[in-house]
């Protein structure tokens, strides 16, 4: 027991102290927390429920735009924005925080409602139809956002300048924001997975027809899982817009080619359908990316494609799956070494 407390204590101290110890990379550390949130929220559907979505990035992007637009419209008139494009004037800390909080709250509402509406249609699809449909959804969202002038169309949208003099350093602020988000996501999900929700979505993953035949409210659970993803992604997106400072429809907001694929990859790399898998996968992937990406001189996206293929083909069970296959007892799985008396397969 003491042992366990020490382990958690070390983790907490490390998480809280990391940006202070390594101030040079605090933005990258914030990104690491974002990646963990990405992988965790993707795994609700992809790992635990067996619905592999390429479209979760939609909620990230929508959350980002909603927050940014509310921040903009609360404190700036259209003309002001027009003339100051690229450098929204300074606003004080209270105004900034008010705008951010209201914007994030609105993002949550919009994204969860959107998830419920989209889910009503799309979650009826099974397997590969669902995967391809969500792939289309993500790209459609980016293309549509790129054509709407109110949100800056293809040339993007600028978020308010972070008031450093009131709220301290931007890097620290967003590091702790994303840390709290990742931790809350982790705790909420591990709590949900232990309850009937977790059992039900696992049942849907293993055999949805059977789950229906047993009377499980499959539609409700699926919609709920999608809405929970949307909830956390809305919070992530809203803050990410402010961290980056500039929202491009297909490179930052609906970044299907980067974040959208990464979240799938990180969850698979760590091990789908486990609570620690996505966390480990995100950490490994992010560190690898930060270490090697810059040495690839523009070939990093080629490398990403190769990495996807390699992981999917050779390592589909991920790190946790590897550990489970080697040392099943370590993860609390029981194995029956005695041969069953009747292995009659019709």
């Amino acid at each position: 027991m003491i042992h366990r407390y020490i382990k958690w204590g070390v983790l907490i101290v490390l998480a809280l102290g990391a940006p202070v110890l390594m101030p040079a990379i605090k933005t990258q550390l914030a990104m690491l927390m974002l990646m963990i949130t990405f992988a965790l929220t993707w795994d609700i559907m992809g790992g635990q429920m067996g619905y592999n979505s390429f479209g979760n990035i939609v909620f990230f992007g929508v959350g980002m735009y909603v927050t940014a637009v509310i921040q903009r419209d609360m404190f700036f008139t259209a003309e002001e924005y027009e003339t100051m494009a690229g450098a929204l004037g300074a606003i004080d800390g209270t105004d900034y925080l008010t705008g951010l909080v209201i914007g994030l709250a609105a993002s949550i509402v919009v994204c969860v409602v959107l998830a419920a509406i989209l889910g009503a249609g799309i979650l009826k699809l099974r397997g590969h139809y669902f995967a391809i449909c969500t792939l289309g959804l993500g790209i459609a969202a980016a293309e549509i956002a790129g054509g709407i002038d109110y949100i800056g169309a293809g040339s993007g949208l600028v978020t308010p300048t972070f008031p450093n003099e009131y709220l301290g350093d931007r890097g620290y602020f967003f590091y702790y924001y994303f840390l709290v988000l990742a931790v809350v996501a982790f705790l909420v999900l591990s709590w949900l997975y232990r309850g009937q929700f977790g059992l039900a979505i696992n049942a849907i993953r293993d055999d949805e027809d059977k789950a229906e035949a047993m009377g499980i409210h499959t539609t409700r659970y699926k919609t709920m899982a999608w809405c929970i993803s949307a909830f956390f992604l809305a919070l992530a997106g809203g803050a990410m817009g402010n961290l980056v400072g500039f929202i491009d429809p297909s490179e930052v907001a609906f970044a299907g080619a980067t974040y959208g694929v990464w979240m799938v990859l990180m969850a698979i790399l760590g091990g789908k359908g486990t609570i620690w898998g996505p966390v480990i996968g995100a950490a490994v992937f992010h560190i690898m990316q930060e270490l090697f990406w810059t040495y690839l001189f523009g070939w990093q996206r080629v490398a990403l494609g190769a990495l996807i293929i390699a992981i999917v083909v050779f390592f589909p069970e991920g790190i946790m799956g590897f550990v489970r296959a080697r040392w099943p007892e370590l993860l609390g799985h029981k194995v029956d070494h005695q041969t069953p008396e009747s292995r009659i397969v019709p």
Partner: peptide, 28 residues
């Protein structure tokens, strides 16, 4: 050849990887 008998999502993801790879190579 390594994914032909595996489940459909694996093949979707693997061919999606091929797609990204080819896109980026062409871009380069």
């Amino acid at each position: 050849v390594r994914i032909v008998d595996r489940d459909l999502f694996i093949s979707i993801l693997a061919t999606f990887g091929i797609s990204i790879l080819l896109q980026q190579v062409m871009n380069q």
